[in-house]
Design a protein around this nucleic acid. Structure first.
Lengths: 189, 189
DNA sequence: GTCTATAATATGATAGAC
DNA sequence: GTCTATCATATTATAGAC
C-alpha cells in the first residue's frame, strides 16, 4: 500500500480549520482540499462519503481532543483541582487561539450541521459539561452547584467566542475565561 | 407604481428567518425567495445587490429591533430598572423563541459574513452591550461593574443559544437568561 | 494513493414579457 | 413589481491514468 501524502492528524487539522471558519455550507470541497494539501479527488479517496464523512471525522477528532485535553485533565485525581482547572483553561485558550478561532461545534450547529450531526454535537457538548461537573464535585460543590457551574463554563466559552468574533476583539473571550476562574474562586491561569 | 406583493417588514422577517437558520453561505437565493413568497428575480428587483444587499438590509432591520426592544426599554427612566430588565429579557426570550432560534449576529459571524458585515455586526453587538451598561449604571453599579455585567449579558445570551442548539434542548438558554436576572439582583446599597 | 479531466447539478445573477 | 426562461459559474462527485 502506498503511504499517504498527508498523515491523518495533519489532514484532519487542516479540514477542521476550514470547517470552523467557514461552516459546513461555506466550506467547499476545493477549500477543504487546499487546506489539506491534497487534491479534491484524493480527498474522496480518503473520505468516500464526501463532505459529510469529512465533517463527521473532524467531529470524532474533536471528541478525542476534548477527552485528552479536558476530560482526562479534569478527572486526574493526582493533581489538586485548582491546578487541573488552570491546565484545562490553558488548553481551551490555545484551542481557540485566544478568541480568534471559531468553535467547530458552533460552526456545525446551523441547520445543515444539526440535520447531519445532531448526535455528535450533543455528545461533544455533554462530554465537556460532564468534565467540568466532575471538577466541581471534587472541589466540594454540591451536585446542583457543580452542574450549574459546568453549564456556565461552556456558556462562557461559546458566548465569549461569538461576541469576540462579532466585535473583532479578543477581550470578551478572555474576559469570559477569567470569569470561569472566578466562578471556581481562582485568580491566576 | 405597482404595489408590492409583500410588504417590507414581512419580507425582511422571512429573509431573516432563512439567514439565521442557514447562515449566509447556506442560504441560497431560492431559499430566500421561497421564504418571502417572491420569486428569485423579484427579490433582485427589491434588492439589486443580491444576497449581500439582502443580508445588509436584514442586519439594519435587526439593529432597529434592538433599538426598540432593548435600548429604548432599558433607557426608559420612567420605569424602575428591575422592571425594565424584566421586559428586555422577555423580548429577548421571544426573539429567540425560547432558545429555538439562532441569533442572526452569530449566523453571520462566520468568515463570509465577517468579511462583508464586520461593521454592522460590531455595531449591533455594541448597541446591545451599551443598553445593558446603561441599566447597570441606573442601578447604582460602578462604570466598571456595569460594563462587566453588560458584557456578561450578551455572553450568556449567545452562549446559551449555542449550547441549546448543540444540545437540542432549550434548558441551557433558559438557564442563561435566569443567570442574567440573578446577576442584577445581587446589588447591595 | 494521488492526480487531471470531466460529468451532473446547484447557484448567483440577468433579460425580457406581462 | 412580478414572473418565466436563461446564462455563466461554482460545486459535488466520479472516471481513469500513473
Amino acid at each position: 500500500m502506498r503511504p499517504p501524502k498527508v498523515e491523518d492528524q495533519q489532514l484532519l487539522e487542516g479540514l477542521m480549520g476550514v470547517l470552523r471558519s467557514k461552516g459546513y455550507d461555506g466550506a467547499s470541497l476545493n477549500d477543504l482540499a487546499s487546506s489539506s494539501g491534497l487534491k479534491k479527488a484524493s480527498l474522496y479517496h480518503r473520505f468516500p462519503g464526501g463532505k459529510k464523512e469529512i465533517a463527521g471525522a473532524v467531529l470524532q477528532y474533536v471528541s478525542e481532543w476534548i477527552d485528552s485535553h479536558i476530560k482526562q485533565i479534569l478527572f486526574n485525581k493526582d493533581l489538586p483541582p485548582a491546578e487541573r482547572l488552570g491546565k484545562a483553561i490553558q488548553n481551551i485558550d490555545a484551542l481557540y487561539d485566544r478568541g480568534n478561532e471559531i468553535c467547530i461545534i458552533r460552526a456545525l450547529s446551523m441547520d445543515t450541521g444539526i440535520t447531519l450531526f445532531a448526535e455528535q454535537l450533543k455528545q461533544g457538548t455533554t462530554q465537556w459539561i460532564e468534565s467540568f461537573k466532575s471538577l466541581g464535585l471534587d472541589m466540594g460543590f454540591t451536585e446542583a452547584e457543580a452542574q450549574k457551574k459546568a453549564l456556565q463554563v461552556i456558556i462562557n466559552v461559546q458566548g465569549g467566542l461569538v461576541v469576540s468574533k462579532a466585535m473583532g476583539d479578543n477581550a470578551p473571550f478572555e474576559h469570559a475565561l477569567k470569569g470561569i476562574l472566578e466562578m471556581y474562586q481562582l485568580k491566576e491561569v
